[in-house]
């Protein structure tokens, strides 16, 4: 698989159905929108027509949740075929998914489950991502998920794992700054080590989101709240290291009025402009 994704800087939102009409009736101040790929795969009717109408007005990113890159089995070929059909139809800026597994042996959890950072898991991820990129005929962006357990057998850090994966497959990276923060609290690492450890030239996108507090001092990646101060601070550090990079607010639950999300996005834009290059 060959292919490159040129840098694209700008500020966007995760498009949710509550805001479809607003995006279609007026031009919103965003440089791109991101949609969940699976919501538009193997479907027609109003959902697909809406996405095509949005695509006429804005660049679109396809963000997937079901590739199951880290599973001990090969990717679902029918899934990849449907994703390829959608990508051809939408001509997205890029296609992304997560460093996770979602199921095994016909049981799909519909969750982003954690991968042990072992050589065996890295080999599976490299094999599976290579298959996916070959079928899709494009390099993907891979996002770091939040996690709530770690595995005693891990021999690599998450950032080392991502760096190795990118070097071996040519994939790019999507940094979810909230997820870096959540995992750093849950697993006790310095989030700046994460930023220092990833290959900056492979990062093409940043997600910003909020989280909630769980048991035993753990943070949970609920993506249902305002971006909190520690995440803004980490974002500033990320921009300092990466330079301009496509950034978006990702709200998955408790969807507020569009104006609230645009205000948060303006904050990201302002912070990015204030950070010294």
């Amino acid at each position: 698989m060959t292919g490159t994704i040129p840098p694209f800087s700008g500020f966007g939102l995760g498009l949710r159905k509550e805001h479809h009409e607003a995006f279609l009736t007026a031009q919103q101040p965003v440089d791109f929108v991101e949609v969940i790929s699976e919501n538009f795969m193997a479907c027609g009717g109003r959902p697909l027509a809406t996405l095509e109408a949005v695509r006429e007005r804005y660049p679109v990113i396809l963000h997937g949740v079901s590739l199951s890159l880290g599973a001990d089995q090969q990717p679902d070929r029918a899934y990849l075929a449907e994703l390829k059909t959608l990508a051809r139809r939408i001509d997205p800026l890029w296609v992304s998914d997560h460093l996770c597994w979602t199921g095994l042996g016909g049981h799909n959890s519909h969750d982003l489950l954690p991968v042990p950072y072992t050589e065996e898991a890295l080999a599976r991820c490299i094999r599976n991502l290579t298959i996916a990129q070959d079928v899709l005929e494009r390099p993907l962006l891979i996002e770091n998920p939040s996690s709530y357990v770690s595995f005693p057998g891990s021999t690599l850090s998450e950032w080392q794992f991502l760096a190795e994966l990118s070097a071996a497959t040519g994939c790019y990276l999507l940094l979810d700054v909230n997820n870096i923060y959540v995992s750093s609290v849950n697993h006790g690492f310095d989030p700046l080590d994460f930023l220092r450890g990833i290959p900056t030239d492979r990062v093409r996108q940043i997600h910003l989101a909020g989280h909630s507090h769980g048991p035993e001092g753990m943070l949970i990646d609920t993506h249902d709240a305002l971006v909190p101060d520690p995440v803004w601070q980490l974002y500033a550090s990320a921009v300092e290291r990466l330079g301009p990079v496509a950034t978006m607010i990702e709200r998955d639950d408790q969807i507020p009025p569009l104006a609230d999300l645009l205000a948060e996005l303006a904050e990201a834009r302002g912070l990015s402009e204030r950070v010294p290059a």
């Binding site: 959890s109 042990p116 072992t118 753990m218 949970i220």
Partner: peptide, 28 residues
């Protein structure tokens, strides 16, 4: 990896007769 993932799935899909093994697994 296969054994780990089968056990992980079984634990998150189990009923409450089998309590989760950690706070993190309870979240999943």
């Amino acid at each position: 990896l296969a054994i780990l993932q089968h056990a992980f799935l079984a634990e998150i899909a189990a009923d409450d007769a089998l309590p989760p093994s950690s706070a993190g697994m309870a979240i999943y």
